[in-house]
């Protein structure tokens, strides 16, 4: 891995490589460059997950021609890249990747669930079928319990690799009411869920960033189950534009400027 990155940087295959480095005991995203080639020996994979792809879109927005290398620690990182390319946030000609797959998906880890949540809410380890085992009324009240904990930090949107809109609907006062906590529920969460149709690659970063322990991924999994059933579209792996880009030819999704 390190040798490959070193070679790419030296030969100019990439101008910048986005990977991880341990700094002060924390594994964090790091930009590796030719000028500081010695640092490449400190390149590590895994242990902490950030959306390196989203970071790459920010770089690409500032320097559209820059050739960027990205470390992919999990399969969903590749899928995030696919979605970002489909939505014109990254130019695949300028992206080189190194696979260092092998990190377990956090959704496969066991979870301790507090008794109150067990009785009244929904847990992160559930799959859509588990939630559907409750009757409609139960399910609704359980979701409302979860949503009512939302503190509107926008962390789910901020961390999400495939949320890149210049103006986010969640901050639009005509779509989601303002001035209250929790935000207008379930509208706040459903607006986001609808936007994740054909876009969410199930990386789980939103859930990890949610201070209120809301099983967001469960919601988006259900949404994309429907997308698959109805449109036969596999978000993240289908190479075509999602069925929801029916915005008309004139609408162009520009890359977000910082």
């Amino acid at each position: 891995m390190q040798a490959q990155v070193e070679q790419w940087l030296k030969e100019g295959t990439v101008d910048l490589f986005i990977g991880y480095k341990k700094i002060d005991g924390h594994v964090m995203p790091h930009f590796f460059t030719k000028e500081k080639i010695d640092e490449v020996k400190d390149l590590v994979a895994g242990q902490a997950h950030y959306s390196l792809e989203k970071i790459a879109t920010k770089v690409a927005a500032e320097h559209p021609d820059m050739k960027i290398g990205i470390l992919l620690a999990r399969n969903c990182n590749q899928q995030a890249l696919n979605v970002l390319t489909i939505w014109n946030q990254l130019n695949s000609d300028n992206i080189k990747t190194i696979d260092a797959f092998g990190d377990a998906c956090p959704s496969e880890q066991a979870e301790d669930i507090a008794p109150y949540k067990q009785q009244n809410g929904l847990s992160k380890s559930m799959v859509p079928e588990d939630a559907e085992a409750f009757d409609q009324e139960q399910r609704f009240s359980r979701w409302m319990y979860e949503f009512s904990k939302c503190m509107k930090c926008y962390g789910c949107r901020n961390i999400c690799p495939v949320c890149f809109c210049k103006e986010c609907s969640l901050e639009h006062k005509d779509l989601v009411g303002t001035g209250n906590l929790p935000p207008e529920i379930p509208v706040f969460h459903l607006v986001r869920a609808v936007h994740m149709a054909g876009r969410c690659i199930d990386c789980g970063l939103c859930e990890e960033a949610c201070p209120s322990d809301i099983p967001l991924r469960l919601l988006y999994r259900k949404v994309n189950e429907i997308v698959k059933d109805v449109y036969d579209y596999e978000t993240g792996t289908s190479p075509d534009q999602s069925p929801f880009s029916v915005l008309g030819e004139k609408v162009v999704l520009e890359t977000t400027k910082l």
Binding site: G25, P29, Q47, A48, Y50, C153, Y154, A209
Partner: peptide, 15 residues
């Protein structure tokens, strides 16, 4: 960005 390995906030932040 929230520091995901920080013992205090474990990858979460408020607005």
């Amino acid at each position: 960005l929230p520091n995901k390995t920080h013992p205090v906030n474990e990858g979460k932040l408020c607005i």
